[in-house]
């Protein structure tokens, strides 16, 4: 697992208070991990802070799963 994936998952675990084994790449923040719309806004902010990237609102709207977040950040940092 990449360093980025590791760090993304840690943020998700900390912010949503979920078990690590549920935080798989296919997991949807809202459907699988119990997040609401405000949680997802805060998650995106935490990703921005951790990785020093800017995630515009329209891009944030398409980040629905753990894997979406990892892919976005990997691309932004490439």
């Amino acid at each position: 697992m990449s360093d980025i994936a590791e760090r993304v998952k840690k943020i998700v675990i900390d912010h949503l208070g979920v078990d690590a084994d549920k935080v798989v790449e296919g997991a949807s923040f809202i459907d699988d991990l119990g997040a609401d719309s405000l949680d997802t806004v805060e998650l995106v902010m935490a990703f921005e802070e951790e990785f020093g990237v800017e995630i515009p609102d329209d891009a944030a709207d398409s980040i629905l799963t753990v894997g979406d977040a990892i892919k976005f950040i990997e691309k932004a940092q490439a």
């Binding site: 405000l38 806004v41 805060e42 902010m45 921005e48 802070e49």
Partner: peptide
């Protein structure tokens, strides 16, 4: 302002 949490107000 982009770092103000959505939970700040509620």
């Amino acid at each position: 302002p982009r770092r103000i949490s959505p939970f700040f107000i509620p």
